[in-house]
Amino acid sequence: MPDTAQNDRPLLEVKGLKKYFPVRGALGTTVQEVKAVNDVTFTLKRGETFGMVGESGCGKSTLGRTILRLTEPTEGQAIYDGRDVFDMTDAQLKAARQDMQMVFQDPFSSLNPRKRIGAILEEPLVIHGIGTAQERTEKVLDILTRVGLQAEHYYRYPHEFSGGQRQRIGIARALMVDPRLIVCDEPVSALDVSIHSQIINLLKQLQAEFGLTYLFIAHDISIVRYISDRIGVMYLGQMVEQAATDDLFAAPKHTHTQALLSAVPVTQPGARKERVVLGGEIPSPLDPPSGCVFHTRCPMATELCKQKAPARREITEGHHVACHLY
């Protein structure tokens, strides 16, 4: 019989995750810290897509890379299927990487220009000792067709492909070791707008076909809305709001979320909506504001916001917000 408790358990639980980058002085001592990710907590359910959205520089990509331990955390936990990724030995982490893969933002720089596509895609199988040479080649040819490419592309080099085709290769590489979780780090931001829908629809198709779970990172909230079951909104290293996609768009609570949604273009002819315009500039993560990090740009800020950081509260089922107004 299946383990019901295990199936009900989130595939990924991120708890109090922090990632600070030291700033060195002339003598090599740490004089400051860049708080790229600061106390982020969320869960990722099996088979769902959790969208992570926010302005450039808010820490989204650092969050994704830290969860996979491509960069080491400062503090916190990332519990994947009951095991803390940050406590794994090198051998355990190597085995876990078969389950956790990443699609990178730039589909050109993430591919080795000196290798043919066949060798690039077979490399993960070689590293993990999966299959014979013939079996690896057969799997590459199968995955190429599943991502919309052709068998003849096996022998070509990355520079012979368009940006959209290279991103399909990046997706194919992530699929080679049969993962369960894929972190998609802005997978369409470096592509032409005309290609966005093709790649997003491909990701949705592959998710249904292979039962994948996605952490989808992007700055375009319209794309995040289309692909995500739940959305987390980040600002200056912190998650300020989290909710099911429909709930977030129907009733955004945090002022930052309201501003992001108000910037989405209206597609109905003649329709208008009120813009939420934020004042000021995004503060530096080197020296974040005291209290609520958003208070310097929030039109609703009070003295309490300047003095005390808001706690993360669940205001309705599954809808969390970090704001003193709630």
Rank of each mutant, 00 (worst) to 15 (best):
E241G: 09
I231Y: 02
I200W: 13
K204Q: 13
T257I: 10
P265V: 02
T245K: 11
V240K: 08
T213H: 08
L212A: 15
P187I: 02
G211M: 05
S228Y: 06
G237H: 03
L236S: 09
D247P: 06
I195Q: 12
A263N: 11
S222V: 05
D220A: 04
L191I: 10
A250V: 08
P187E: 01
A271H: 12
H256G: 02
L202G: 07
Y226P: 04
E186G: 06
N201P: 03
E241P: 01
A250D: 13
L191V: 08
A250C: 08
H196N: 14
H196Q: 15
I199T: 09
I223R: 01
N201M: 06
V188D: 03
S222Q: 05
M239T: 06
T267P: 08
G232H: 10
D246N: 10
L260N: 04
G232W: 02
F210D: 15
V266W: 04
A243W: 01
I221G: 05
D220S: 13
T245L: 04
M234A: 09
T245I: 07
A243Q: 04
R230N: 14
Q268V: 15
H219Y: 10
E241W: 10
I223L: 15
S222W: 11
L236Y: 08
T245V: 14
R225G: 02
H219A: 13
I200C: 11
S262P: 02
P265W: 10
A251W: 01
I217K: 04
D220N: 14
I221C: 01
E241Q: 06
P269F: 00
P252E: 10
I227N: 08
Q238P: 02
L202A: 00
E209Q: 04
H254D: 09
Q205K: 15
